[in-house]
């Protein structure tokens, strides 16, 4: 699932936050969005299309495309680019249609 990120390792800051992406700890800058954390973690894709099952990943990072839907702290269908990380936040891929 993991590949090398298409982004360089983020600059180190004193107030960096550790979150959990697909169960693995990832250090991200304070103020990062959950979608940014997934990108930093190098997830090859962040969700599967509920229509075709194809892998998808964040596209616009501005709240328009809804490609970055993630399961955040067990709550599905969250727009990852609009959720700011908190220490210990659990971020998971969203597989197809959300669960009930």
């Amino acid at each position: 699932m993991r590949i090398d990120s298409m982004f360089l390792k983020p600059p180190e800051t004193a107030d960096a936050v550790t979150v959990e992406v697909e169960g693995r700890p990832v250090v991200v800058p304070r103020g990062a969005s959950a979608a940014a954390a997934a990108l930093i973690a190098g997830l090859a894709s962040t969700r599967a299309s509920p229509v075709t099952g194809e892998p998808r990943a964040p596209y616009c990072m501005m709240g328009a495309c809804f490609e970055c839907l993630l399961v955040i702290d067990d709550e599905p269908s969250q727009q990852g680019c609009l959720v700011t990380v908190r220490p210990g936040m659990r971020i998971r891929r969203q597989e197809g249609a959300r669960e009930l």
Binding site: D4, S5, M6, F7, L8, P10, P11, V28, P29, G31, A32, S33, A36, L39, I40, P58, Y59, C60, M61, M62, C81
Partner: peptide
């Protein structure tokens, strides 16, 4: 999208 990541948390593309 890449610019948002750069401006907000200093992320640079590979």
């Amino acid at each position: 999208a890449a610019q948002v990541l750069h401006k907000s948390i200093g992320l640079l593309p590979s």
